[in-house]
Amino acid sequence: MLKKIGFPLVILFSITGIILSYMYDQQQIAEIADEATSSIPVEETKPSEEIEDEPVVDETVSLGWLGSHIDNDPYLTQKVVFVGSSSFTSTESDYGWPNLVMEETAHAIDTTTIDYEVLTYSGETVSSSLIADTARDITAADPTVLIIESFSLNDNQYYLPFTEQESFDNLSLFLTHMESELPDTEIIVVPSNPFPNALHYLERKNVLDEQASTLPGTYVDHWGAWPTGEGLESVTQNLRPNDEGHEIWSKAFLEFFIDS
């Protein structure tokens, strides 16, 4: 009888032990998992910041006169008009320094539309009828930038009786007239080219240099870039620049225009 009762009790205790052992093991596993999870550092997720694209700045433009001018209205189509005598055309070809300047400018500046036009007047002088002959053409071209030669070489060649001061006074009168006709246009004045063995012409240039600050616009003197003596003879023909002379003139002007 005792054997019949003891055997089931042994089985019951064995099953109970197995169940309690299993529950204990599960509890231990859970505690180990909790400890492992709590030991792992959690990084805080920061909201992504929007990064704005910075505008690309053309350093070539930002350093030159033209760059500063464009910065005032970068979306405006620029119209550059050159006005000069036959010195604006090479004695060896149909090309001149204005064309060279604008080709180089187009390579340096591709963010702004720039058109240009070259107006040449072979026999006109500021001491005679420059205003009557050219002002209408310039106004019609509607430039945002007007680059004009002093025409002092024509004054010297065709109208020597006019004094150096009279030449300057007439240039000032012409530029003042253009300033009133085109109040939003930037004016740049350049002297005519040098040539060998000049006498009265040098006196005209000296007066222009001394009083240029009183003229409307900006005066850009390129003479320092030209050679002297026999070197000057090799880059001019019949008082006007040849191809090499126009290269010199264009490079000197570009130093100012786009800081090339």
Rank of each mutant, 00 (worst) to 15 (best):
M1L: 11
K4I: 07
F7L: 15
P8H: 11
L9Q: 05
F13V: 15
F13L: 15
S14D: 06
Y22K: 12
Y22W: 12
D25E: 14
D25A: 14
Q26E: 14
Q26N: 14
Q28S: 10
I29W: 10
A33H: 14
D34T: 12
I40A: 09
V42D: 03
E43G: 03
T45M: 14
E49L: 15
E50G: 06
E50D: 10
E54W: 01
V57M: 06
V61G: 13
V61Y: 11
D71P: 05
D73T: 09
P74S: 00
Y75M: 11
Y75D: 14
K79M: 09
V80Y: 05
V81M: 08
V81G: 02
G84P: 06
S87R: 05
F88Q: 05
F88M: 13
T89N: 05
S90A: 02
S93G: 03
D94T: 12
D94M: 07
W97I: 01
W97T: 00
M102I: 01
M102Q: 03
E103I: 07
T105A: 06
A106G: 05
H107D: 13
H107M: 10
T111W: 04
D115V: 03
Y116N: 12
E117M: 04
E117W: 03
E117Y: 08
L119M: 11
L119F: 08
Y121A: 08
E124F: 10
E124V: 12
T125A: 09
T125Q: 02
V126Q: 01
V126R: 00
S128F: 10
S128Y: 09
D133N: 15
A135F: 02
D137E: 11
I138K: 00
A140Y: 09
A140C: 00
A141G: 04
T144V: 03
T144D: 02
E149R: 06
D155I: 00
Y159R: 08
L160D: 14
T163A: 04
E164F: 05
E164R: 02
Q165A: 08
E166L: 08
D169L: 12
N170H: 14
L171K: 01
S172M: 10
M178R: 07
S180A: 15
E181H: 09
D184I: 01
D184G: 07
P191S: 04
P191W: 02
N193F: 00
N193A: 07
P194M: 09
P196S: 11
N197G: 08
A198V: 04
L199Y: 12
L202Y: 06
L202E: 12
L202T: 00
N206M: 11
L215V: 04
G217Q: 00
G217L: 01
G217P: 02
H222N: 10
W223L: 06
W226N: 01
T228I: 11
G229S: 03
G231L: 02
S234W: 01
V235G: 06
T236P: 06
Q237H: 10
N238P: 03
N238V: 09
E247S: 12
S250P: 07
A252F: 02
I258T: 15
